[in-house]
Design a protein around this nucleic acid. Structure first.
Lengths: 225, 225
DNA sequence: TATACATTATGAAAATTCTAATTGTTGAAG
DNA sequence: CTTCAACAATTAGAATTTTCATAATGTATA
């Protein structure tokens, strides 16, 4: 487990590094923004602890870079008390947690653990098919790294497709899976067509591949090629 | 099993009666509208086979009377071919099936059987609480014999209430039962309030009893008194 | 290939569900 | 008996889902 500490106060940084090493982490230290950016560019850290007030800029810049890189590093923001605005900005930018100075080292350790645990959990809870990624825990779908804004039915639909790739799925199965017995089946599949259309349109926004192929008279097949 | 045949052609009537008696039914015959009304007033037939073209009026009148009496008799309409308009009217009025002349006696028998079977099934699939009746097989709710036009969520809601009468139901249970884990619970119960309000309003249309009592801080209780 | 028929796609309206803001109630504390 | 805060009711509006009418497409047949 590699951790990067971004902190300009040498005393504090030193004690954090000492503590975390004792806890079994590989721990590195950057004392300014530029160096932090360089390091985070070179390595994929499991977690980064970033002070916001740095001599050469705001720690928030690191977060932006991390997110631009699509790194999966967890990020904990550290700042002086009462910097609530930063907190909001930081979390919106994609930080995973927030700590106000002064803080207990055990507390920091606990948060790091929590983040790493969650990252692992999350990693097991994504499904990928070519350009499409589904994050189950967040009910979130990305196509070519662009987030799709899907409704619940659309999400259920694509989840069912991605769970059954490369095989022909009868319309009836789709209807049954999405609506259960709530519906008087067999009247029509208009609602399937309808949601399908919307889903296709949303995928097309970010991809030129047609993933949902119609199989005339039977149903659909989810595949690339 | 008592069956009434309403038919003015004696030859046809006779052959129907003969056939059905042989099949084990108690079978009676009315050769005009007035007599049919009188008979159906006196007895509760399991099923009535009604010709529409009668010398003294339309067989549809019998259906109306039956429905006004809240009789549970099944009704099969019989009419000459191409009387499609009647078909629609008849089924809307509450007929259970429709047959065009000339018809096969075995066919008639099959339909009678089907209707009686369904009536029996249906009877087992209703729940009643004071003025409120729920017909599960049709997802239909009546209050004082007036049919309520409910949406799916409203139906689920009243079904849950009527299944748990006279006890306090926490809001959370309702939410869980109606939405399962689809919802991020605990944010708010606005959707419960919302559907509840609509359900209450619809019940109030036909009843002055307040069935859904608020239990402050906990949830609701479904009862009369 | 032309035609008819069935199936699927599309767009827009209607219905339902959910959300958010406001107002009204209730019960506890002073 | 007030006042307050939490809770619930209400309302209107936004978002989603479903329905419906129509267009487009595919398949089989001649």
């Amino acid at each position: 487990m590699k951790i990067l500490i971004v902190e300009d106060e040498p005393m504090l940084a030193e004690s954090i590094v000492q503590y975390l090493k004792k806890e079994g982490y590989q721990c590195e230290w950057a004392n300014n923004l530029a160096y932090a950016k360089e390091k985070s560019w070179d390595y994929e850290y499991d977690c980064m602890v970033v002070d916001i007030n740095l001599p050469d800029g705001s720690g928030l810049d690191v977060i932006e870079q991390i997110k631009d890189m699509k790194s999966k590093s967890g990020i904990i923001i550290v700042s002086a008390r009462n910097a609530m605005d930063d907190k909001i900005i930081g979390l919106n930018l994609g930080a995973d947690d927030y700590l106000t100075k002064p803080f207990d080292l055990a507390e920091l350790n606990a948060r790091i653990k929590a983040i790493i645990r969650r990252k692992n959990f999350d990693a097991q809870n994504t499904t990928t098919f070519n350009e499409i990624e589904i994050y189950h825990y967040k009910k979130l779908v990305k196509v070519n790294d662009k987030t799709l804004k899907l409704t619940k039915k659309e999400y259920d639909l694509i989840l069912y497709f991605i769970s059954n790739p490369n095989r022909v799925i009868p319309k009836g199965s789709i209807a049954e899976h999405l609506w259960g017995d709530e519906m008087d089946m067999a009247d029509s599949f208009d609602f399937v067509y309808s949601h399908l259309k919307n889903l296709r349109k949303k995928i097309k926004q970010y991809s030129c591949i047609n993933y949902i192929h119609t199989v005339y008279g039977i149903g659909y097949k989810f595949s690339d090629q």
